[in-house]
Amino acid sequence: MNAISNIFRKKITETLSKEDLETKEAGMQLKKEINTIFGRSLSIREVDAGSDNATEIELVNLTTPHYDAEQYGIAFVASPRHADAIIITGAVTINMAEAVKKVYEATPHPKLVIAVGDDACNGGILKGSYATLGGAEAVLPIDWKIPGNPPSPKEILKGLLALMQSIRDKK
């Protein structure tokens, strides 16, 4: 056993019986974009500013075997210090506004801010409540929106792909 035999050996893995080709294709394209724009990896810090938790569940699902977003270069990181991008979910509540701003400040420049889910995009169902300030735009500059109630993992992947393409087009 040496390094070369490791490469040519048959891989110990099983194919998923219900693989979704559309997701896979979007993922592979996303990987290409991330490779060129971010040098192989896009590190994301997720912040819940007041969601109903459905969007969080779908973001967690991105890391599970059916999607395994890490294979496309996406990593959810534990600290804003390690992040290239912040994902905000939920309409920003008064009680969370301060914490959201601190996360933004703690993330190194240059950084992307992505609003995921209807609530973060435009204030959603609780727009006009005394307790929310509105969508993520109310407290932070937003670079991209991925709408949905909640968006499915596939829609989130496609949204990230569209964001990468828009960055490349600007260059």
């Binding site: 914490a99 609780l126 929310t132």
Partner: peptide, 27 residues
């Protein structure tokens, strides 16, 4: 931290409108 004011928000709404609000209590 996530207090969104759901109970107050429901007041004055038609019951049909509040089904979606009930769904948004917890994902």
């Amino acid at each position: 931290y996530k207090h969104r004011g759901i109970e107050k928000f429901a007041e004055g709404k038609k019951p049909e409108e509040c089904v979606a609000l009930a769904e948004a209590i917890s994902g």
